[in-house]
Write a protein that binds this DNA or RNA. Structure first.
Length: 679
RNA sequence: GGUGAGGUAGCUCAGUUGGUUAGAGCAUCGGAUUCAUAACCCGAAGGUCAGGAGUUCAAAUCUCCUUCUCACUACCA
């Protein structure tokens, strides 16, 4: 593959500018892409590494409103924060741009215009909620109301965070605009859709050429294409005032959909970096385009963005999309809102100058094929038992002996023994072994191969025992130490993509210029007589106390999360409104699971008035056989509704705690027969 | 429920087109050693390859069923 390409364009998913970077982001795409790019650079290949902040979209406007600042303020803050911490961590982007830049606005706008002029989009008029006071359409996130499912009064228009269900804004009970607090009205609006349904054959053909993609990536793409109705048209514009304005007449007050806008950010960033020849990287067939992303982005990078590029016409498409799975933290999902994360900017303070320890740990346990778990104990072990004990130790013993025996001057190799030759042969084979793994995006394997070189070194010293031989055969020891130094030097070369800070430290100690990848195949990079610098330790042990401090920090956020979140009270209502509800005491007579659902139970309730069927989403909390005879409160004059083909005639009232668990509510005294009113 | 990805030693993971006693690192235990940050080196122990059935001379690998985890998706009046 590389034979047919002249250059490589590597993109790393644009991080969303509403929070700092955490280890999940790093393990998912930034670290693998950085390793890949550093390796390519070391090989002397033409490679460009693109990233930037994704700064549009509704969550940022909400965050801004909450904090009483402008969306631009929000993205300025996080753009700087993310950019700084990436840099300090050694993620070597050639450009770290942002989607609020002028270049990006122009590029995205032109891109849309081109597709528009080509007649790619379909127009569709739909009804959306509109806030008459604020005079704007409301994104789903700007509407709150009562969740129709769990009765959480603070559900968003797209999702209820309490019960986790996805919603349509129009389903919310008692919807409310978060802008003005007023009740939104439905109003017609026009949006532009990318007709993915019509493009499906083209996308199919594209994916068919890439069956070599990682199984998780290809599998997920297939599932989109093969699912029931296939691909569906997707709106590429939104009624919102934060983003790239839609450059079309009649589209005032509309912006491009973030997922239309964000991937174009890769193009804009390249333009900024190479204003004169950026097209070479995006339009020349001899450029290889690779997107590094997390698994949540697969559909956008493998289906939607390629579709956009295809329809535009001039662009090349991704040759590979090596998406990683997710990284968990101490057994739980990483969550920004629950503060369950290791934040990069905090790590960089707590573990100053230990970038490589985290890089090493995250790479060696990267979620390449399935979700993985990051634990602090593992972090400590990887540092103490591998970086310190194997790599650091080998380098240290080699340099210490060199200073001790030769005052830091590289001894000359004399006659090689059979075992020496074997070692040298193995030594020169390492770069290709590591290359092979990196080219296949198997970074864990590549890293472990790199460590094997240090192991080889340790083993060589243990077998030849120069500290014993020095007393009887000084000539022989010179050869041994020369070889040990060659191994050390080549380690400095091949470890660079993974642990660049260590690499440069090592080159410094060896008093060597930075050597490139091909040099690692040589076994004589360190010339006899060359004088090395004073040695220092490459890695320090990490003590239990430091690890405990991090674990305590996490425990604290866990404790903070357990404290019950009390939903704020709803707006005042009238007694008349309340008394319209006819709530009764009833008893469950029969209960059974609704087939093909996870959460639904079909209940037969004696309401005192009659016996009726109610479908209720409580199957996660109650087993059918356990609740026969259970007394419940039921809203009996609610309009019936068909759920999964069953007509549900009422609603069981449930108490719901902050964990989203549900509980029946009933009279606590006996003798409250069915039909007793609740008021 | 549908779709996709997973379930291999205590832990984290490899296992190519089915082919001899299923591998590695870390952790554990034993030995050896002292140049080295009690590190290194050698060795041992450790697995009904989630469970069951089938195809085959031969299955971790192919087929079917069951079960668990994760993601997307559906149901929630």
């Amino acid at each position: 593959m590389s034979a047919t390409y002249k250059r490589t364009l590597v993109t790393s998913a644009l991080p969303y500018a509403n929070g700092p970077v955490h280890i999940g982001h790093l393990a998912g795409c930034y670290l693998p892409s950085d390793i890949f790019v550093r390796y390519k650079r070391s090989k002397g290949e033409d490679v460009m590494f693109i990233c930037g902040s994704d700064e549009h979209g509704v969550p940022i406007t909400i965050k801004a409103k909450k904090e009483g600042i402008t969306p631009q303020d929000v993205v300025n803050k996080y753009h700087k924060m993310m950019g700084d911490s990436f840099k300090e961590f050694g993620i070597s982007f050639d450009v770290y741009s942002r989607t609020s830049s002028k270049t990006h606005h122009e590029t995205a706008s032109d891109f849309f215009k081109t597709l528009y002029d080509k007649g790619v989009f379909t127009e569709e008029i739909t009804e959306q909620y509109y806030d008459a006071e604020a005079k704007q359409f409301l994104a789903d996130r700007y509407i709150t109301g009562t969740c129709p499912k769990c009765a959480n009064p603070n559900a968003y228009g797209d999702q209820c965070e309490k019960c986790g269900s996805t919603l349509n804004a129009t389903e919310l009970i008692d919807p409310k605009s978060t802008l003005s607090g007023s009740k939104p009205i439905l109003k017609e609006t026009k949006n532009w859709f990318l007709p993915l349904d019509k493009l499906q054959p083209k996308i199919q053909a594209y994916l068919d050429q890439h069956k070599d993609w990682k199984t998780n990536v290809y599998g997920q793409c297939k599932s989109w294409l093969d699912s029931g109705d296939g691909l569906q048209p997707r709106a590429m514009t939104r009624d919102l005032d934060w983003g790239v304005p839609v450059p079309v007449k009649g589209a005032e007050g509309k912006v491009l959909y973030v997922w239309f806008d964000a991937p174009i950010g890769y193009i804009s960033a390249t333009k900024e970096l190479r204003p004169n020849d950026w097209e070479l990287y995006w339009k020349d067939k001899e450029t290889r385009l690779i997107h590094f992303i997390g698994k949540d982005n697969i559909v956008f990078h493998c289906i939607i963005f390629p579709a956009m590029l295809m329809e535009h016409g001039d662009f090349i498409l991704a040759d590979n999309v090596p998406a990683n799975e997710f990284l968990n933290l101490e057994g739980d999902k990483i969550s920004t809102s629950r503060n369950w994360a290791v934040w990069l900017h905090e790590y960089l303070i707590d573990f100053k100058d230990k970038q490589d320890v985290l890089r090493y740990t995250l790479c060696s346990n990267a979620p390449e094929t399935k979700d993985n778990d990051f634990t602090w104990a593992d972090f400590q072990t990887k540092n103490n038992s591998e970086l310190v004990a194997i790599l650091g130790n080998f380098v240290n013993r080699t340099l210490v002996l060199t200073h001790k025996y030769y005052n830091g001057s590289v001894p000359s190799a004399d006659t090689y023994t059979k075992e020496d030759l074997l070692i040298l042969e193995q030594l020169s084979a390492f770069p290709d072994k590591i290359s092979a793994a990196i080219e296949q995006f198997k970074f864990r394997e590549a890293l472990s191969e790199m460590m094997n070189l240090a192991r080889l070194g340790n083993k060589y010293l243990a077998e030849t025992e120069p500290w014993k031989l020095i007393k009887i055969d000084e000539q022989r020891v010179k050869t041994i130490m020369n070889i040990a130094l060659q191994i050390t030097c080549n380690l400095a070369i091949v470890c660079e993509p993974f642990i660049p800070f260590t690499s440069s430290k090592l080159f410094g100690m060896l008093n060597m210029p930075i050597l490139k990848w091909h040099a690692a195949k040589q076994t004589s990079n360190m010339a006899a007589g060359h004088v090395i610098n004073k040695d220092e330790l490459l890695f320090a042990k990490i003590e239990d106390a430091e690890i405990q401090a991090q674990i305590d920090k996490l425990s604290a956020s866990k404790a903070a999360n357990v404290t019950t979140v009390i939903a704020p009270s709803k707006p005042e209502t009238s007694f008349d409104d309340f008394s319209k509800m006819d709530i009764r005491t009833g008893t469950i007579l029969e209960a059974e699971r609704v087939p093909k659902t996870d959460k639904l139970l079909k209940l037969k309730i004696d309401t005192g008035i009659d016996q009726r069927t109610v479908v209720s989403g409580i199957a996660e909390w109650y087993k059918p056989e356990d609740i026969i005879g259970q007394q419940v409160s039921i809203l009996v004059n609610l309009a019936p509704r068909k759920i999964k083909g069953i007509e549900s005639q009422g609603m069981i009232l449930m108490a719901s705690n902050s964990a989203g668990e549900l509980s029946f509510i009933t009279a606590t005294k006996p003798d409250f027969n069915n039909g007793s009113e609740i008021k």
